[in-house]
């Protein structure tokens, strides 16, 4: 303690205190909100679904907005014909049940088990035909062509999700989410059902094989190391500009001040008076 007291008027003490506080706040915030916890990827299994169980879950958790018969209300669209894939995408990414009315629903922690989601999906699929949850083999990237996927991705996806799938802004408060946490099944379902502002990429637009190539590109890209150092968020030159101004110039200015520093005579000055 006396060590701190002796140095509390040290020129660097203020900076040290601020840096310490920042660390405390960051650790506290991280502890409260969880350090970057991602959704666990689970292999989609075509388990036997219990439609009756699904209907019961639907009535408890979804019907207040989507209506008792999933017919839709002014707050939420009809789910008749939405298909199992849409339900699985929305619920397995935590977007549904929605937290609030807003421009769009963002990914959040999932509150249902995968079996419960399949049950609800089975119930919705029983109302009218719609896109099915893809099987494990349909989303498998084994043998997929990531190079073709990169071309397909750059012509169909980068406009919104960015060149490396880091996400991007859309209009009116919507955004294209980063593709860092999506499972292959979720990516496939998103292309199939076109959630939120995303267009539907049906099998006529992107064949199942194209979809697998895109998934291969996305999963390879996000897993790949950055040969040039820290990725700086993979958002292009904006963060590079930030780094050169704050890091590059900041560092050099400190060095320049050091090179040209003069010995301070203030202490002598004080003694004179």
């Amino acid at each position: 303690m006396s060590w701190i007291i002796a140095r509390r008027r040290h020129p660097a003490a203020g900076y040290a205190a601020i840096a310490g506080l920042l660390v405390v706040v960051a650790v506290g915030y991280g502890a409260l909100t969880g350090f970057g916890s991602g959704a666990s990827a689970s292999a989609p299994a075509q388990n036997a679904t219990d439609i009756a169980q699904g209907r019961s879950l639907f009535l408890d958790n979804c019907s207040s907005c989507h209506g008792l018969e999933a017919q839709g209300t002014p707050q939420a669209p009809s789910l008749i014909g939405a298909g199992a894939a849409a339900v699985d995408f929305q619920m397995s990414t935590g977007r549904m049940p929605a937290k609030e009315q807003g421009p769009q629903n963002d990914r959040k922690p999932v509150t249902f088990t995968q079996q419960q989601i399949y049950d609800i999906a089975g119930y919705i699929a029983s109302l009218a035909p719609g896109p099915q949850i893809p099987s494990a083999s349909e989303v498998s990237t084994a043998g997929a062509d990531a190079a073709l996927g990169s071309q397909l991705f750059s012509t169909n996806c980068t406009q919104c999700h960015g060149f490396a799938g880091a996400g991007g802004a859309l209009t009116y408060g919507k955004d294209a989410p980063p593709l860092t946490a999506s499972t292959p099944t979720q990516i496939y379902e998103a292309m199939l059902t076109g959630p939120e502002a995303m267009p539907v990429f049906g099998d006529g637009t992107l064949t199942p094989s194209d979809k697998r190539d895109i998934i291969a590109y996305i999963t390879q890209t996000r897993g790949e190391t950055n040969p040039g150092g820290f990725s700086l968020g993979r958002t292009g030159p904006v963060t590079e500009g930030l780094v050169i101004w704050l890091g590059g110039l900041g560092f050099l200015v400190l060095i320049a001040m050091w090179i040209t520093a003069k010995r301070r005579d203030t202490r002598v000055d004080l003694d004179e008076s």
Partner: peptide
């Protein structure tokens, strides 16, 4: 610090445009 990772951007094609397409500062 990685700068201008052109392998991520991919070869130019006039058909495509990425979000967050910015020039250097």
């Amino acid at each position: 610090a990685q700068i201008n990772p052109i392998w991520q951007y991919g070869p130019y094609t006039p058909l495509a445009i990425s979000s967050a397409s910015q020039p250097d500062w």
